[in-house]
């Protein structure tokens, strides 16, 4: 596990992660439009993807493919993990959007406030 010692010391990526995370989180909380909320959720999830991918980076490492003359590789595991997470994210978004479609069919709106006006306890 030598990559721990030579991992990229720059924090640049992590700032972006935090930035994206907060933007996404804010949108989820503050926006009343159900589609926009999902957009926010996606941004939020994307920040995590970036987080994982960044930590897999090894300075000077190449893509993890064995070949002549390459000694240092990036850690492929986080990348693979994030592939799974992306799939999960896509599924979530698809399900969320289909719910929004059905909510629109039922309520005629995708604005939280309007739905709220129609139902007391949402």
């Amino acid at each position: 596990m030598q990559y721990n010692e030579i991992i990229n010391p720059g924090l640049y990526n992590y700032w972006i992660v935090i930035f994206l995370m907060m933007i996404g989180f804010y949108i989820v909380i503050a926006r009343g439009n159900l589609v926009k909320k999902l957009v926010g959720l996606n941004i939020f999830q994307t920040s995590v993807f970036v987080l994982y991918i960044s930590m897999g980076k090894v300075v000077g490492g190449t893509a993890p493919i064995f070949g002549e003359g390459f000694e240092v590789f990036s850690n492929p595991l986080p990348h693979v993990l994030i592939l799974t997470a992306i799939v999960v994210g896509v599924a979530t978004t698809a399900l969320g959007l289909s719910l929004v479609v059905r909510i629109r069919e039922a309520y005629g709106t995708i604005e939280e406030e309007d739905i709220h006006a129609q139902e007391e306890d949402f």
Binding site: V28, F44, Q45, V88, T92, L95, G96, A106, Y107, F122
Partner: peptide, 20 residues
């Protein structure tokens, strides 16, 4: 009930946040 939809949506948002 149509509120099942909104309840499910609400859960989806919070559940995904939790999982993330």
């Amino acid at each position: 009930d149509r509120r099942a939809l909104t309840a499910s949506y609400q859960y989806l948002i919070m559940g995904t946040l939790g999982a993330t």
